[in-house]
Amino acid sequence: MRNVLTIAGRELRSYFVSPIAYVVLTGFLLLGGWFFFNLLARFNLLLTIYSAQQNPQILQRLNLNEFVIAPLLHNLSVVLVILVPVITMRTLAEEKKAGTYELLLTSPLRISEIVLGKFLGSFVFVAIMVALSGVYPLILFAYGNPETGVVLAGYLGLLLLATSFVAVGILTSSFTENQIIAAVSCLVSLLLLYIIAWPADNAGETIGALLRYVSLTEHFAQMVKGVIDSKDLVYFTTVIVLALFLAHRSVESIRWR
């Protein structure tokens, strides 16, 4: 565990001296703010229209959770698909390029400690990103009354989603010494996992269900609705563990060649 923390600590500190990390963090928060502002403006507009029409049924259905926070979380998840690969691309690829991989692999560290340390370091950075984007819902709490439980479930969903992205990013970074290749292959894998359920409605019953199960979006959408189901938690855990296991194998494979 001490070794995992050593690796993770070094990784995290290196983020905070790298311009890429700041660009990603700023970009993420700016885009989040833009989404938030527009969603809120639209919500206000709807509110004015339906109040003027004196339509109590619709007014009742207008709530901050469904009209602002849920779409905000979905938008942020798409941004994370693009930005997390940029955060994770350097983890192992850069070590190979710089020759420091040789230091890590010839030290008494276990490969699992290297992989977990890298994962933990990137996870903490991404978790900070997600947490900072929490200021937008917090603003809503100051001026309105969204349902706390639903917001928290949605944010847990976003964090789990981001953590799965990080695990996949570590995996693709372990394949190559080229950061661009690591980032692009991570992005493509994540997009695929994101949209894999698209043909589910046309596909047969079993295949449709399978596609829906594999899709990240479906599980995330459940949590955004405020439903924390063990089935979704198991899904995210499976993705994370599987990706890290494969990353372990990939780092280890230098020993078989």
Partner: peptide, 22 residues
């Protein structure tokens, strides 16, 4: 080629190596 992390100082690097060497 010396396995160095460009963004670390000499001392923090040596501390890191000492730790991973156990």
């Amino acid at each position: 080629s010396p396995p160095l992390y460009g963004e670390m100082t000499t001392e923090s690097y040596l501390r890191f190596v000492a730790r991973i060497k156990g």
